[in-house]
């Protein structure tokens, strides 16, 4: 699955999609595929502050736990509660299944993240195929 060109990416496999002063955050298709069947997500609450590079929750498949790292700093303005009841949505549509929406603190942080091309190159090197 191609990585959307209008998203930015972390080396920890989160994506961020900027929309004005706000942004939505999720994990990449590569990440969901590595994890396998996702059964559990733990997300912050509205009003919590995310700090770029710091963990803000976790995602669990049957066999593994993986921390979520904030691609950028900002206050949580919405949480995708649908994922609590249907975490498998992350498997079926990783780039659509946003987890949180934040009010960006510093839009400049996003520009430091990987472009879709760079992320694609990065996962090809990491995956060795």
């Amino acid at each position: 699955m191609p990585f959307p060109a209008n998203y930015r990416y972390t080396r920890e496999h989160e994506w961020i999609k900027v929309d004005g002063g706000q942004a939505t955050i999720g994990i990449t298709d590569y990440a969901q595929n590595s994890l396998g069947d996702i059964v559990f997500v733990e997300l912050p609450k509205v009003g919590d502050e995310l700090s770029a590079g710091k963990t803000f929750g976790s995602v669990e498949s049957v066999k593994a736990v993986s921390d979520l790292y904030a691609p950028a700093s900002g206050k949580v303005v919405a949480v995708n509660d649908e994922l609590n009841g249907a975490p498998e949505k992350i498997n079926s549509d990783a780039h659509g299944a946003w987890m949180v929406r934040i009010q960006l603190k510093d839009a400049g942080e996003v520009n430091k993240l990987l472009s879709s091309d760079d992320y694609d190159k990065f996962v090809k090197e990491e995956g060795g195929h």
Binding site: H13, A31, L35, S66, G127, G128, H129
Partner: peptide, 8 residues
């Protein structure tokens, strides 16, 4: 995430 290591 753990990368899939080449099997060697």
């Amino acid at each position: 995430m753990t990368p899939t290591a080449e099997a060697t």
